[in-house]
Amino acid sequence: MTVMLTMTSDAAIDDPSSGSGIRRTVGTYVDSVVSRPLFWLLPALLFITVFQLYPVFEVFRMSLTDMSLITSEESYVWLENYRRLLGSERFYSTLRVTGLYSIASIILQIGLGLGLALAIDYGVRRGLRGPLFTRVVVLSAWIVPGIIIGLVWKIMLLETNVGVVNNALGRLGFGIVPFLSDAQIAVVSVITAGAWRGTAFSMIMFYAGLKRVPDELYRAAKIDGAGPLARFRYVTLPQLKSVVFVVTILVTIYSLNSFDLIFALTNGGPGRATEVIALSMYKSAFNSYEMGMAAATAVVLLMVTLVVTAVYFRLFDISEEI
């Protein structure tokens, strides 16, 4: 915008001819400026450079230093952070937790999301009552801020009578279940809360995909004698292939990088039972002030994400879709 304004005023000074002449020249200047793609892209590219491109390089650089939050001095220690990381118990534990959490989340969220999307699409096509309400309820869960989801589930799963789940179980004659204090059960709790939040995303993506399947395809398949299961297998699924791909990638990236919900629900506990990589990175940076070490963890997280994505690109043959 600024660029354009200065150019137009230059034009007015350069051309002291008649009024319409000036307007004409100004018009031509505006024209030539706005017909360059850079004029349109520049602000976006600038923002991306400052807030995405540069930080990515910077996190790599930081991971090679002993940068700390408390001192302003820093020196290059090269691969020392990585050596320490790979030599620590904690790292493998967070890797394991992240892997477990992500795999369970992907299966749950994609399975539930697809199931719900099919149920909603079916209901809409059949004119049943309820699909809209269900869709809105599920989507609402996705809207709730992650940190508050953590809080809500913490309240739900409290290991006293206040925790509604334990309260109900108690009335049924069960003892208190240590939802958040048992290492193994806590992981299940975190995964459940994650699914509560994340299912909506895959549901809405699948639903959008299902809406795009033309009715004629179903009719044609019916005429060809395909039953409901066959129609799902040979019409719906192939049409959803690219959506499945996109959803899988996004859910994977999302779960691998989970942070806020777990931060609020268990903060990684008990012990390190639910500490995912992102959480451990954040803690080393802001609790132990070891920015270099934390950056190395972040780089590992990025690498894991990229490798997994690359594997997906290999597994799915999406060449025809793109």
């Binding site: 991306i48 400052v50 807030f51 995405q52 491109l53 540069y54 930080p55 990515v56 910077e58 996190v59 930081m62 990638i249 990236i253 999302y254 691998l256 990088n257 942070f259 992102a278 990175m281 954040y282 940076a285 920015m291 934390a294 950056a295 972040a298 997280l301 990025l302 994400t305 990229l306 994505t309």
Partner: peptide
Amino acid sequence: GFQMISPIVIVLPLYDI
């Protein structure tokens, strides 16, 4: 491609910047 990079990965350099 930047879509694939979660903000959490770059939160440290961002804080620094």
